[in-house]
Simulated assay, not measured.
Amino acid sequence: MSVATFNEHALGWDSLGDGPAEYRTPAERPSLEQAKVWCRELATSHYENFHVATFFLPKQVKPHFESIYAYCRVSDDLGDEVSDPQTATRLLDAWGGMLDECYEAPERSRHPVFVALRETIVAHDVPRELFARLLQAFRQDQVKTHFESLGELMDYSRDSANPVGRLVLWVCGYREESLGLLSDKVCTALQLANFWQDVVEDDERGRRYLPGDAMLQYGVTDAQIHERVFTAEFWRLMQSLVEQTRMMLHDGGRISGLVDKELGATLELFRKGGDAILDAIEAQGFDVLRQRPEVSKGKKARLLAGALVGKMRGMFS
């Protein structure tokens, strides 16, 4: 069942009322195959790099990552694409209830995400907490829009980013906490890199992820961000944040050499992608107020070529 066909057969909103239209719950439970198709179409149509990322993963786990991505995508959109925070919170609570149902009474699940996700949960004994923590972060987004320290951002990333990396490890058969902690560093650093890249876009949405205590330390104000005034003080702030983020990214990046080579190639691709964002910020003199730093197509191509070499080595060594 494609996303379009699914929407044609969806009757009513159930507990997801007022959410994005494409996420309606169907009147009848889809088959497992229909649910997988829905998740695959959602993943590949909403995220242009999804094909690239999953190409470097073992073939047998790709359907599981499609269902995990679909869960994350719907969760994010329920929190981010609904303008009223109270409505968004209610939708996230309803989605959380459907997650609980997927674990406790899976025969009652009707949404294709949870029909497909149930197979992943059973096949790999995935802890509910990893999915629930993501919802906690999206709920927090409804009430907290400014962060006053790097510690607050680290706490936020613990729920908003780190569970994704741990899900990747879990589904690939890695349960060691030492690997989980390295993954957390990479995921948190990637989250922070995106924040430093999107300062203007976030400001336009009424959000500020630059830590308030660091802004005070370097003499940067919220008004300066609103008015897009780049100064030597802002340069020093961004230079410091980029340096801290890069150190975290490289420290966590040691995980790539501690897992099998196929997975290692994927994790190294993500790590280098974060580095590329930080490089782009540095390349424009840390002036993220002038324009959003972008990774060039040539740089992306070189990253993919390097990851492909790593994958081939893993397959034939």
Score class of each variant (00 low, 15 high):
N162V: 12
E243M: 07
R24H: 14
P85E: 09
C102F: 02
K36Y: 09
E294D: 08
K272M: 07
L249D: 10
T188V: 05
G298E: 10
E152V: 03
R166S: 01
R302P: 06
A189K: 05
V37L: 13
R24D: 11
D125A: 15
F65N: 06
Q244P: 04
F270R: 00
T221D: 01
H9D: 08
A94Y: 04
M154K: 15
L134I: 13
E262A: 07
V37Y: 11
M154W: 15
R271M: 02
F195Q: 05
Y156W: 10
W38G: 05
F55T: 11
K261S: 09
L241Y: 05
S178P: 01
Y209V: 09
D100P: 00
F230D: 04
Q86M: 13
G298M: 04
L278A: 03
A137E: 09
N7K: 15
V220M: 08
A94R: 01
L169K: 09
V288A: 09
V113T: 05
E22D: 13
T87H: 08
A283L: 06
D203I: 09
H111A: 00
R175M: 05
S240Y: 15
S75V: 09
L179Y: 05
V37P: 01
L237G: 03
L57I: 02
A301L: 10
A214D: 09
K299D: 00
L179Q: 03
M154Q: 14
W38P: 04
V122H: 02
L237F: 03
D84R: 12
M248R: 14
L16F: 03
T188I: 08
V309S: 12
L278Q: 06
G219V: 00
R228G: 02
L134Y: 04
P63Q: 10
R128E: 10
R254Q: 14
E48K: 15
K272C: 05
L269E: 01
F147M: 02
P293M: 03
G97L: 07
G12C: 02
L135H: 01
M238N: 05
L190W: 00
A232W: 02
E201M: 04
Q244G: 08
N49K: 15
P20S: 07
F56P: 04
A94T: 03
L241E: 13
L32N: 02
C187W: 01
S157E: 03
